[in-house]
Structure formats: structure tokens, C-alpha cells
Design a protein around this nucleic acid. Structure first.
Length: 951
RNA sequence: GGGUGCUUAGCUCAGCGGUAGAGCGUCGCCCUUACAAGGCGGUGGUCGUAGGUUCGAUCCCUACAGCACCCA
């Protein structure tokens, strides 16, 4: 083995070998265990959130495979409608073209081309993370099979009356020219103004003042609302107002939506451009007046002078005119929430448009068939409420159910070209025909179309196809094999439906609504099954200071830069390349130069994965600190070197003298306590890790293994082995070698789901020496704890040994005795057990504490002046002569005595409290009594020692 | 306005009714032939504040403060 851990060397070969061997495909044996990859944007790149989430999935898949499950990690990518279309439109913009210049077919062809060019970037990055995914079944939401599923679902829902077309208010992105989901809209706090405007009554006798942050929308006002119980305005209800600048008259209406205490208590109502106003308008049967075009310019419904003005220019003009006519009462600064499109950064304009919707809210249809609430929403709610689907951590179930309880119909049409074109056609009379294709649409229609048919221009929301992911990727709706464009079979519903429901969905909380809920709806409706039994909501990755990672802040990390490392200059270059604003660019560059003066060190995939595991508690954010990752790289190095050392020593035992072979679990401890101890500790570790995997506490699993490897196996077990390795007199060397090797082999398997590369690399060395030949650690069984290997006795004995050695080391250190210097060691008092232990462990004590062979001082014999510590009743002494300053030792003892006295006072306080003794459980009281007894024993011995030092 | 979290060592985080823990950092001594990405030994916390329940509270309850996030 190499002298140190070099991740790049190890990682380069193993992944390709695993993939080529077919190891990632379902074994076909055991219970099905499926994980669905939340399909990333096909043309995207891997970010820290992906890397974290995929590490979690990979740990689960590898773990369950080792446990004998028939695992499938179903992967694929998403066409990401708006995002991908926008990238290609930006490319066209460089050529000074728009998509309209190309035309629909040519544009879509160009997007496909872009997908071919960049579509494998993210999947190749996933391979670097080590993802044990079945790439032979990789799918794309717009491939033929998944598109067929989309069409079938649309048609079935339409024919069941659950999809309808309607003119409704939607979030409109005036830059992209499409409806967007309310989940794709961020409400951003911005500095704005609150303007107060006076509206006179029609007769000019009275007036009221409305407050608004969007004065330009007054051009579309249809009423002013006041609270029905607001005495200030009671007399105006029902009267007509003169709407300034327009010549229109609008009524004063009463609606208890109005907050009397906000502003003036009068609310202007613009139903065509505000969701709340829309609802009020409907309640009062007021026809909305749309005043904007689809690119947010004032339209012909407004007075002529404003027509054609952009929203914000119209605002200026309206304000100026109101001011001129003395109707602008007040202007004051105001913080407001502005809806901003996540996709274009444009301010959203609510707009009345014709769109397609999935009914999720009606109980029953006019013809008596069940409505969307009964048919789609409620089954999805019930699946979580009745526990068929569990969230981890469980409180996310509340988020899910609250959202579904208040759900609106789902607007599924998008005015884009990239996506699944809606399988609906219109005849010249505007009748709708839905079908697989035009012929099917005609054939399925009840009446003959009038004239020619024209297909709907719009495409479906990306999440519509994602909602089908749990079953469409398994081959539905086809019955037989489904092939990809290369002719390879990628799914076969007949066989693959055993993977539904999948075991667990690992995903971020931000798409519980977008995706999780919709998968439950669609999967329940079309297959009658739940899509997954559990939903593990992973934390959001932030930077070390807890800030969101964002390119404009310069605090993003590329997982591959952590794995491979990157020098400062290339890092600056890549981080600022896409930033267009010079100030932002400068800020980011400055930050990067400050945060990473030497660039980013290469930590390797395994260390990155271990870091993710160690951070994956139930908390909702994880702050990623490179320092911590470096610490776990050190852990990998530790494991590497421990393995190297063990292998070196094993090889010194001649093969024909080995008493073991094929010895994975054929343990021969040789009667040695240290072997029984480490085997016992291994069992405890196995049990803990199992528990932590079961509860998705990867942080605790990682910590348990870290502690076992470093604090037990390396710090104590290997050290305890050394005397056997170097100068074994009793012929136990091979028993020690065997156990060291077996425990290492188990440990590698325990660690493999977390750090697959290094464990495979080492295991390839270890396994043959234990006499078993298999290809890969990948499909080895996960270790199972065995009761027969537990040993309380060995735990107790080794605890004593550790305590004794630690006491000697402590004295050495505090007395400034050079670590290299061998010193004498004396024992006094103690019981028979101590005598036996000293005899048994003499060699180890001398080795670990760098002492001469320990000597006993018999009771009553003269004692040399010595520094001392106490283990139970045993006094551990280091003679002072030439080594120790008496005054320093006295000070040390005094401090130790004081510390123990404090502990004793604490115990006395408890035991002196009658109600403690009366009420606390018996074992707690007993424990307290034992403790005080132990402290007193120690204290007595220390005082005696201090007394001796006085002489 | 409704909801969900969080507040523990300098930093990043576990713990959650009975002796406060980890990693990183920091201090001291060591290049002791597995590992200096290391070894040994330290330092460091009135567990956000105030009440309450309890024999006992970092942990349970209430209020408050601060910080996040989600929904309207």
C-alpha cells in the first residue's frame, strides 16, 4: 500500500469497474428496495445540495444492497421547461435572435441539440460522487416512454372531468410571457411607497381616500371596498364614486376582507391584477377590467393617454396626473412584498388568461362524477394522515397536509415551446378535442369538429411529468419492455412494478409542494399505490456562516472542486465568469481571495461524503465548513495507515503458520483479552450503526464509526497489539493478527456505504489474506452483531488498563517528563484483581506508558517519594528521584484533591436531601452512593500520598 | 397575520430528566519505525433570558428576546 491516502488514485478506477460489472443493477434477489432520484435539470451542473442529497441516497442504496435487498436506484433527468428554454434563448440573444425568429420546430430542435451537448454533465458529476445508480435505466422526462405517460395522464384526467380549460387569474411573467406556478414566485421585500388617493363620490358631495402601493392599477379599479362594520364609511356603502382619470363610476362595496386598521380602511379593488381583489370581485359579481397587455404595458381599456406605457411609466404618469388634479393626498415610504419570478427576476403581474387546470378542489362534478378533491387531493392527504407515507423528520407531514388542505386548482399550461405539448386541438368554433394525436382526438369526440383542427400551442408544467416519475420510469403505461432511443430496454412495467412503492424519497423541503405532493396524487390515482413509504427531507446546504450559497455572494462551493481541489486563480476565474455586474464581480473576487487564499485543497470524494454524513442530523440546514471536511480527510488517512500497519504485520506471519483461513467470522481470539475486547466493541458499534441507519441519523452513524476506528481500534487496540507484533513470546502473534484483520474487514464493510472508494481499495488487500475471494466489497453482506462476541469482562479489564495507562501519561505530561523517556513504575495497595491485571498487562502498560517493568511495593514497606494517581484502591506511582519536582507534585495533588472534594460535595448534597433518597429511583440513589464511595476511596489514597510527600 | 424550526466550548454541531460531548481551533511536550493529515496531555461552557413543574431541568411547561424559514 502507498504510504498515505491518495484519493485521486483510488477513485479513478473503482467507479468504472463497479459500473461495468453491472453491480448497480438490481440483483434480482431479496426484497425490492427502490430509491427515486429527484431528477435534476438535464442541462444543469452538480451543486452542493445535489451532492449532499445524492450521498444520502447512495449511502442508503449501498447499505440496503449489502443487507441483501434487491436495490434499484432509479435515475434520470428533467427537461426543466422554463429554465432550459431560457438558457437557449439567451444563447440566441447573443446572435441577436429570438425564438420567434427561428420558429417553433427549429427552436425545439436547437434545445434538443443543447440537451445532447450538455445533458451528460450532471450525470457524469454524479459518478464522481460515487452514486451507485442504475444508469442502464436512466430516463429523461421528455423521452418517448415518459411522454407517452404524460399524454395518457392528461387524456385520462381530461376524460374523467378532472382537467379543464378556463379563464383565470394566474401569476404571469411578463418577461418570459408565460404563466408560472405560485411556487415559482418569490415574495421579496422591497422599498416602495404607499400612496393615498382621494376618490370623490359621483355627486361630488363626499370623498374617501384609498391607500395603494400600485397606483397605476387604479385604471382597472371596479370598486372600493370598506369593512361592513366600519362606521366611518357606512354612509357611503352603495354609493358611486368617480374614478379619477377615467371618467368611469365605481361603487363602494362592503366586504369583511378589509382590514379597518390598515391604511385608511378603504381598499381599491382591481380584480384583473390582484388575487385578493379577484376574490372580492367574484363575491360581488364585478366584471374585472384588464388594463395590461401580456408584456405589462397599458392596454386599450385605459384612457388613451396611458396606452402603450410600461407599468412603471404608467405609474409615474398616473401619479403626476393625480397630483395635478389635487387628488394625491399623501406619499410615504413603505416596505412592501413584491412578487418576483424565480425564473426571470421580473415582477409578476397577475393576469387573466386562458389556461389548463387540474381540478383539485371540487367535491363532485355537475354530472355526478367525483371532483378533483375527492378523486385526487383527498387520497393524497389520507396517505400521509393514515401513516402509509411517513415523513422524516416527521413534522414535515404538517407542512404537507396544511398545503394540501388549502390547495388551489393546479395551472398546468405554460406558454413555452420546450416541454410536452398539450394533446388538445381546437376546431374553428373553439371546441376542444383531446387525444393521443389528432386522429385519436377526432375519433374520441362526441361531435364532429367544425373545420380544421389546430393543436394547442402551450406545453405542460414540468412538474406534470415529474409527478409521474414513480411509475412512468418503471415502464407505465406500456405493458411490455420500454426501449430508449438506442434500443436498450430501460423499463418493463410487468416486472418492474415490484419497485413500487419505492422505499424512501430523499428530497429537499422546498419541493414538498412542487413535487412530493403531486407524485402522491398522480401515483395514487393511476396505480392505486403510494409512490414511496417514507420521505426523508434532507437539510439545505449553506456556507460555514449559515448563509445561503449564491453565485452573487461568491460563497458557492462546487463539490468537484472539493474533491479534486482547485488553485486560487482558476477558482476566481470560474466564480466570476458568469457575473455580469462589475461591482458584484469585484465583491465576489475579493471574498474568494479572502476565504481561500491558497485555493481549495483536494479532500477526495470519500472525505466529502463522510462530511455530509457527519452533518446529516435532523436539523433543516447544514453549514458546510471546509475545515470539517479536512478533518474527515484526516480520518480517511488514519484508516488507510491503520490498515497498512495491520497488513504489514499480518504478512510477517508465514502463511503456513496461520491458524486461520476463510475466516470472515470464524473468530479465534486465542483467549486474549484484547481480542475479546475489540470484538465486543465491534458488536456494540455494529448495533449502533444499524440503529442509526434505521432512523436516518447519518451523523450519529458516522460519529459512531469515527470513534470506533480512531478512539478504540487505532488508539488502543492497535497499540495493544504492538507488543505481540514486535516481540511475541507466547506464540499469540497470529491470533492478534487474525483478529486485527477480521475487525478491520468488518469495519471496512461497516464504512463502505459512507466511504465507498477507500473501503473498496483496502478491502481488496484484506479479503484475500482472510482467505475469501470475491470481486468487490460492494456486494458483501453488511455486518451483523453477534451476542456471543459480547464480553463485559473484557470491557471491564481493558477499561482498567486504559485508566491506569492514562494516569501514568497524565503524570508524565504534567510533570514535564519527556515523552520518549522510559521511567520506573510502582504499584501499591489495590486488590487481588489489580495484581492479576498488572501481571496480565505488564507488557502493554510498559509499552503504552513508556515505563520499565512495573514493581509492587508491599504493604508496610518503605516507599520512595513519588508522584501518584489512584485507580480504584490501586496507587500508581512514579518515583521522584531525578524526575519530578516535589513542589510541583504537591501542587498537582492539591488540585486533584480539591477537584474530588467538589465532586464529593455534589454527591453529599444529593444524598443529604431526604426527598431525593425517598423519591429518586433506587438505582439512581445506589449509583450516587457508589460514586461517593469511589470518590472517597480515591480521596483517601490521594491524601495518604500527599501525607507521604510531606515527610 | 398563521405556521415551523433554531439559540449548548472561539467556530460548526450532537446530546435532551439523573457526573455537559464531538470535529475544527487553541496551549504545552514529542518527528516514540502505521499515520506530523500524527502521538500524549491540557485549556475552554452559570447549555438565549425569566418564571414554573420535579427530589433533581441544558432536557418538560409558560412567557419573553434574538435568528432563520414557510404560508397568507
Amino acid at each position: 500500500m502507498e504510504k498515505s491516502f491518495e484519493p485521486a488514485q483510488i477513485e479513478s478506477t473503482w467507479y468504472a469497474r463497479w459500473e461495468a460489472s453491472g453491480a448497480f443493477k438490481p440483483s434480482g434477489q431479496g426484497e425490492p428496495y427502490c430509491i427515486l432520484l429527484p431528477p435534476p435539470n438535464v442541462t444543469g451542473t452538480l451543486h452542493m445540495g445535489h451532492a449532499f442529497q445524492q450521498t444520502v441516497m447512495d449511502m442508503l442504496v449501498r447499505y440496503q444492497r449489502m443487507r441483501g435487498m434487491n436495490t434499484l436506484w432509479q435515475v434520470g433527468t428533467d427537461h426543466a421547461g422554463i429554465a432550459t428554454q431560457k438558457i437557449v434563448e439567451n444563447q440566441l440573444a447573443v446572435e441577436q435572435k429570438t425564438r420567434h425568429d427561428l420558429g417553433r420546430d427549429a427552436f425545439v430542435e436547437r434545445v434538443w441539440k443543447w440537451k445532447e451537448e450538455s445533458g451528460s454533465t450532471i450525470t457524469n458529476q454524479m459518478r464522481r460522487i460515487g452514486a451507485a445508480a442504475d444508469w442502464s435505466r436512466e430516463r429523461f422526462t421528455m423521452d418517448e416512454g415518459l411522454s407517452a405517460a404524460v399524454r395518457k395522464v392528461f387524456i385520462d384526467w381530461y376524460r374523467a372531468g378532472l382537467i379543464y380549460r378556463g379563464n383565470r387569474l394566474v401569476n404571469w411573467d411578463p418577461v418570459l410571457g408565460t404563466a408560472v406556478s405560485d411556487l415559482e414566485v418569490n415574495n421579496v421585500e422591497r422599498d416602495g411607497h404607499m400612496w393615498s388617493i382621494r376618490y370623490m363620490t359621483a355627486d361630488g358631495a363626499a370623498s374617501l381616500v384609498v391607500a395603494t402601493t400600485r397606483p397605476e392599477t387604479m385604471l382597472g379599479d371596479v370598486a372600493v371596498a370598506v369593512h361592513p362594520e366600519d362606521e366611518r364609511y357606512a354612509h357611503l356603502i352603495g354609493q358611486l364614486l368617480h374614478l379619477p382619470l377615467t371618467g368611469r363610476q365605481i361603487p363602494v362595496i362592503a366586504d369583511d376582507y378589509v382590514d379597518r386598521d390598515f391604511g385608511t380602511g378603504c381598499v381599491k379593488i382591481t380584480p384583473a391584477h390582484d388575487f385578493n381583489d379577484y376574490a372580492i370581485g367574484q363575491r360581488h359579481k364585478l366584471a374585472p377590467i384588464t388594463i395590461f397587455t401580456l408584456d405589462a404595458k397599458v392596454n386599450d381599456n385605459a384612457p388613451e393617454k396611458y396606452r402603450g406605457l410600461d407599468r412603471y411609466d404608467a405609474r409615474k404618469a398616473v401619479l403626476a396626473d393625480l397630483e395635478a388634479s389635487g387628488l394625491l393626498v399623501e406619499t410615504k415610504p413603505h416596505k412592501l412584498q413584491v412578487p418576483v419570478s424565480q425564473r426571470s427576476d421580473a415582477v409578476i403581474e397577475p393576469m387573466l388568461t386562458d389556461q389548463w387546470f387540474v381540478d383539485l378542489t371540487s367535491d363532485v362534478q355537475a354530472d355526478g362524477r367525483p371532483g378533483g378533491r375527492k378523486a385526487i387531493t383527498e387520497p393524497a392527504l389520507d396517505a400521509v394522515r393514515n401513516g402509509d407515507i411517513k415523513f422524516v423528520p416527521e413534522n414535515w407531514a404538517t407542512t404537507y397536509t396544511q398545503w394540501l388542505d388549502n390547495i388551489q386548482d393546479w395551472c398546468i399550461s405554460r406558454q413555452l415551446w420546450w416541454g410536452h405539448r398539450i394533446p388538445a386541438w381546437y376546431d374553428e368554433a373553439g371546441n376542444i378535442f383531446v387525444g393521443e394525436d389528432e386522429a385519436d382526438a377526432r375519433a374520441s369526440a362526441a361531435t364532429a369538429p367544425v373545420g380544421a383542427l389546430r393543436q394547442d400551442d402551450d406545453v405542460l408544467d414540468t412538474w406534470f411529468s415529474s409527478a409521474l416519475w414513480p411509475f412512468s420510469t418503471l415502464g407505465w403505461p406500456a405493458n411490455g419492455p420500454v426501449q430508449n432511443e438506442r434500443g436498450d430496454v430501460v423499463a418493463n412495467w410487468e416486472q418492474d412494478k415490484i419497485f413500487l412503492p419505492s422505499a424512501v424519497l430523499v428530497t429537499g423541503f422546498d419541493i414538498i409542494f412542487f413535487w412530493v405532493a403531486r407524485m402522491v396524487m398522480a401515483t395514487k390515482y393511476f396505480t392505486g399505490q403510494i409512490p414511496f413509504r417514507e420521505v426523508y427531507i434532507n437539510a439545505i446546504v449553506r456556507d460555514a456562516e449559515g448563509q445561503k450559497m449564491s453565485k452573487s455572494k461568491g460563497n458557492t462551493l462546487d463539490p468537484l472542486d472539493l474533491i479534486d481541489g482547485i488553485a486560487l486563480e482558476p477558482l476566481v476565474e470560474k466564480s466570476t465568469k458568469s457575473l455580469l455586474i462589475p461591482q458584484v464581480r469585484a465583491k465576489v473576487e475579493k471574498r474568494i481571495r479572502k476565504d481561500y487564499p491558497d485555493g481549495i485543497p483536494a479532500i477526495g470524494t470519500d472525505a466529502l461524503r463522510f462530511t455530509f454524513a457527519a452533518l446529516a442530523s435532523y436539523s433543516r440546514t447544514i453549514n458546510f465548513d471546509i475545515k470539517r471536511a479536512e478533518g474527515y480527510k484526516a480520518f480517511c488517512n488514519k484508516l488507510w495507515n491503520a490498515s497498512r500497519f495491520v497488513l504489514m504485520n499480518v504478512d510477517q506471519v508465514e502463511p503456513d503458520q496461520r491458524k486461520w483461513n476463510n475466516a470472515r467470522s470464524n473468530f479465534s481470539d486465542g483467549g486474549l483479552l484484547i481480542n475479546r475486547w475489540i470484538l465486543s466493541r465491534l458488536q456494540a458499534t455494529i448495533r449502533e450503526v444499524e440503529e442509526h441507519f434505521r432512523s436516518y441519523r447519518f451523523d450519529l452513524a458516522a460519529q459512531t464509526l469515527y470513534e470506533f476506528v480512531w478512539n478504540e481500534y487505532c488508539d488502543w487496540y492497535i497499540e495493544l497489539c504492538k507488543p505481540y507484533f514486535s516481540g511475541d513470546k507466547e506464540g499469540n502473534k497470529d491470533f492478534v493478527s487474525q483478529t486485527a484483520l477480521q475487525v478491520l474487514e468488518h469495519t471496512l464493510r461497516l464504512l463502505h456505504p459512507i466511504i465507498p472508494f477507500i473501503t473498496e481499495e483496502i478491502w481488496q488487500q484484506v479479503a484475500p489474506r482472510l482467505g475469501f475471494e470475491t470481486l468487490s466489497i460492494f456486494d458483501q453482506p453488511y455486518p451483523i452483531a453477534e451476542l456471543r462476541l459480547d464480553s463485559i469482562e473484557a470491557d471491564r479489564e481493558v477499561s482498567w488498563l486504559k485508566a491506569t495507562v492514562s494516569k501514568v501519561r497524565q503524570i508524565r505530561s504534567e510533570m514535564n517528563i519527556s515523552p520518549g523517556k522510559t521511567i520506573p513504575l510502582l504499584f501499591a495497595d489495590g486488590d487481588d484483581g489489580d495484581r492479576a491485571r498488572v501481571a496480565k498487562f505488564a507488557a502493554q502498560i510498559s509499552f503504552l506508558a513508556r515505563t520499565e517493568a512495573p514493581q509492587w511495593i508491599e504493604a508496610g514497606a518503605d516507599e520512595p517519594a513519588a508522584a501518584a494517581a489512584v485507580v480504584g484502591t490501586l496507587r500508581v506511582m512514579i518515583p521522584l528521584a531525578g524526575l519530578i519536582d516535589v513542589a510541583a507534585e504537591k501542587a498537582r495533588l492539591t488540585k486533584e484533591i480539591a477537584r474530588i472534594e467538589v465532586e464529593i460535595r455534589k454527591c453529599e448534597g444529593k444524598l443529604g436531601n431526604a426527598s431525593f433518597v425517598a423519591n429518586a429511583p433506587a438505582e439512581v440513589v445506589a449509583q450516587e452512593r457508589q460514586r461517593i464511595a469511589d470518590w472517597n476511596t480515591t480521596l483517601g489514597a490521594l491524601r495518604e500520598q500527599a501525607g507521604k510527600l510531606q515527610k
